[in-house]
């Protein structure tokens, strides 16, 4: 289980990296860095695909219950760095789903991580500098702050893109 946890963190990191690169590409004009960023994006997606395949092979060994299918065909339409062999079953994506009660336990206290939810996605703010002691302008970690985010940081999606995603809200 520990290994799967690490893989999930790695995947989240890669997704964040990809989002960040997409954001950069969307906002930048033509520049000599464009090719470098495209190259990095290509590598990130390759890594994500590799990890998904690896997780799928682990899943087929164990008897975990699938919760959400991953649209691998979409990824494969764009690039084919690793072609999955046809005899493999479709990979299942293990995604963490939080209930509001579960989220509340991630309050950053007693050595626990600090998570907050915005627009149904759950973000890890344990080591985010603006969340010292798991508090941010009077808000405590472990809650859904969709409305608060909209009222203070409307349109500042780069803030969210820089945070690791740990799952989504049920």
């Amino acid at each position: 289980m520990r290994n799967i946890e690490l893989l999930r963190l790695q995947l989240n990191h890669l997704v964040t990296q990809a989002r960040n690169d997409l954001y950069i590409l969307a906002t930048m004009n033509d520049s000599p860095y464009k090719n470098q960023i495209l190259q990095r994006l290509w590598e990130t997606i390759s890594s994500i695909e590799f990890l998904i395949e690896y997780l799928a092979s682990l899943a087929s060994l164990s008897s975990t219950q699938p919760t959400m299918p991953i649209p691998t065909d979409l990824v494969n339409e764009q690039i084919q760095p690793v072609t999955p062999s046809p005899d493999q079953p479709l990979p299942d994506y293990e995604y963490r789903i939080f209930t509001t009660q579960e989220l509340a336990t991630y309050d950053g206290k007693n050595g626990r991580p600090a998570f907050v939810a915005v627009n149904n996605l759950v973000y890890d703010v344990t080591n985010d500098s603006a969340w010292a002691a798991a508090t941010h302008f009077g808000l405590e970690a472990g809650k859904d702050y969709t409305n608060e985010f909209a009222s203070c940081h409307q349109g500042q999606l780069a803030i969210l893109a820089a945070l690791p995603v740990v799952g989504r809200l049920a």
Binding site: S129, A130, A132, A133, T135, H136, F137
Partner: peptide
């Protein structure tokens, strides 16, 4: 930071 430093804001 973990003690609640508000320097980052």
């Amino acid at each position: 930071f973990k003690l609640g430093c508000r320097g980052p804001v």
